[in-house]
Computed example of a mutant assay.
Amino acid sequence: MSNLQQDPAIRSLLERMPKNVQTTFTDEQLAHLKIAIGARQWGNHAVDCRGVVKLFKYRYYYVLLAGRNRRELSTKEQKIARFTQALILSIAANFIILFILLVLYLFKSTLGIDIFEGYSFGVWSWFKGLFN
């Protein structure tokens, strides 16, 4: 089985054909089939937002696509993906921890508990000021 037959787009196309037809394609024919169906490769996405914006005499199009990545990733892409996931996870964890600390601090302040006698971080004053 050639590398082209392992390609997800080609595999999907071949699976919809009878077995005796699947085996008759040469690598050159498969390469041309891949080029021909390449434009349809980005099929269905969880988020698919497309439109056109007209500014003055020009029209600009925008496309926002998001969904599960079904491609085989290279080693470099896998490293970048792991780093990006770790970065996003650490930012989210820090945000959640800081938010919980803020809520706990505000709760402590509503009860009138002082951690340091005669010192305030100013968060409680700021929070009360939001509602005045």
Rank of each mutant, 00 (worst) to 15 (best):
K34Y: 02
K54H: 10
K79R: 10
R40D: 12
L30M: 06
Y119D: 08
A36P: 03
A31N: 03
K19M: 09
L98E: 08
G38L: 05
Y62Q: 05
I88V: 14
V21R: 02
Y58L: 06
K76W: 01
D7H: 11
F83V: 04
V63A: 11
M1P: 06
D7F: 00
K54F: 05
M17T: 02
L89V: 10
E117W: 10
I96T: 11
I88D: 04
L98Y: 14
K128P: 04
F121A: 15
H45R: 13
D7N: 05
V103F: 15
L13E: 02
S120F: 01
S109E: 14
D27K: 00
W124F: 06
M17K: 07
G122N: 03
I96W: 14
K54A: 10
I96C: 05
T26A: 00
D48E: 11
L104T: 07
A81S: 10
L104R: 01
A46H: 04
I100R: 12
Y105L: 13
L106A: 02
S74M: 02
R11Q: 12
L73H: 04
N3E: 15
F83S: 04
Y61F: 09
V53E: 04
L89H: 08
I88R: 08
N3I: 09
R68L: 14
L102T: 09
E117C: 01
Y58E: 02
A93P: 11
A9Y: 09
F83G: 04
A36W: 15
H32E: 15
T110N: 04
N20C: 03
V47W: 03
L89G: 05
V47I: 13
A36K: 14
W126I: 02
V47N: 07
N94F: 11
E117G: 02
V63C: 09
L33E: 03
E117S: 06
P8E: 07
I88S: 05
F56M: 13
V63R: 14
F131P: 05
N20Q: 13
S74P: 06
L55A: 06
G38Y: 13
I91A: 03
L101A: 09
R11V: 06
L130P: 01
R40A: 13
L104W: 08
T23K: 05
N94C: 12
V52L: 15
Y60I: 02
A9H: 10
A36I: 15
D7L: 02
N3P: 00
G51S: 06
T24L: 13
F131E: 10
F83D: 04
C49E: 12
Q29L: 07
Y62F: 15
F116K: 07
H32R: 14
L104C: 12
R40I: 05
L13Q: 01
L64G: 03
T84A: 14
K57A: 11
F127T: 01
L14Y: 01
A46R: 08
V53W: 03
F131I: 08
Q22F: 00
F95I: 07
F25H: 00
A46C: 03
M17R: 11
A31V: 00
F99I: 08
L106V: 05
R82Y: 14
A92S: 11
K19F: 12
Q41G: 08
L13K: 02
I97R: 09
V63D: 12
R50T: 08
I113C: 01
K76T: 12
Q22L: 01
I80L: 15
R59M: 12
F99K: 12
A81T: 07
Q29R: 13
Y61C: 12
Q85W: 07
